[in-house]
Amino acid sequence: MTLFRLAGDLSHVLAILLLLYKIWTTKSAAGISGKTQLMFCMVYVTRYLDLFTSFISVYNSTMKVLFISASVATVYLIYFKFKATYDGNHDTFRMEFVIVPALILALIWNYAFTFFEISWAFSIFLEAVAILPQLFMVTKTGEAENITSHYLFALGSYRALYILNWIDRYYFEGHWDPIAVTAGIVQTVLYGDFFYLYFTRVIKGRKLQVLP
């Protein structure tokens, strides 16, 4: 495993825990897109179907279990425990606009026309765009709380670090995964605007506000 990937995975874990911590301590899901979290939950479940059929390492299995359980817990907190605080009125992005294209693309572009591989490809494509409802919500409300900004930064950094990992693996191992790389680049590009605002505002101690 490359250092870039380890850093990426840790950034991913940090993002997930930051979000759970924010919702749990403030007892509020305000400013968080339930739709994005619901789609991330779908991403983990459809990707890690291989949890019991293909063993990679204790590290891999542990992370998979962690991602699935933390994601289910997040969705539970938003839609059940702290449902009253969830800002559904501002969470208006239509999930079918990304789920349907991701499914169609997975049926066309996959490594084998089997249930497991189509499910895996669907998961990769959906992950690339699952953040859209959250970014849409930040744009619509015009701002994000600092901890939400840190969450988005850690989540965006994760796939960016994976890109460095893929470059490293291509040169040193000849490893090349076109589906993951293409989706990973799209995913990272979607965070572009946010990264800019994060560096120019949040890092300087200001709240993240989207200009009208």
């Binding site: 991913h12 990679i56 891999n60 991602f67 895996w120 993951a180």
Partner: peptide, 10 residues
């Protein structure tokens, strides 16, 4: 196997 290649990343 069912997989064309092993998905060894997360």
């Amino acid at each position: 196997g069912r997989f064309v290649k092993t998905h060894d990343e997360l």
